[in-house]
Amino acid sequence: MGLPREAGRVAAVAWKDLTAERRTKANFNAVVFLAALILFLFGFALGPDAEALRAAAAGALWLTVLFSGVLAFNHSYQVELESGALEALLLYPGDHRSIFLGKLIANLVFVLLVEAIVLPLAAVLYHLPLLRPFPGLAGVLLLGTVGFVTLGTFYAAIASRVRAREVLLPLLLFPMLVPVLLAAVEATGALLAGDPMKESGGWIRLLLIFDVIFFVASFFAFEYVIEE
């Protein structure tokens, strides 16, 4: 058994994925450019009204994260499938759930890095105050991303091994994400507006609870999904 051994496996899977990502870079760069493009498009679509843009910023920011992040999840399994590495990974002794945790961490790092680039860009494009609400905003981004990446890593284990994976992953993932998206957008919007109603706390607690529920549920359900 041994917890250290499991932790080592988790770290090994995460490290392997991130190294592969760092070596190619092409995928990361493409996702960042896509995210920037979506931010631009929201700006165009919402028109020249700076006030309207600021009001819609929280929603636009999270949708950008969702649309660009969803590309990363399929990719993380697809690389394994193309080289037949997933079968090998499953053959190693020990708990399959460490694969889930490893991939979860790798995806989390990936999406957080994308956000680190997208957030300042959104601040410039949508005239958002970043520094004043920063600690709270970073917390909301982290919690929302954890919920998003947890479910994304879980569903991608299914969708990446299916014919129409590009369509299927968002179709399965996004409806389940609605509570996380709602809480994240409301909390972000409240913080960006200076939190006049002190309502961000309630939404952040809600996010935390969804994160716990989704994490525990997908952690245990992963076994059924990955087994061959």
């Binding site: 709602l182 939404w203 609870i209 525990v216 952690f219």
Partner: peptide, 21 residues
């Protein structure tokens, strides 16, 4: 795991947090 998930749901429903919605 099941207990954690159930507690989470219970907290959601009866902890008054859903009143945001």
């Amino acid at each position: 795991g099941a207990i954690v998930v159930l507690c989470g749901f219970g907290f959601l429903l009866y902890g008054g947090i859903g009143e945001n919605l």
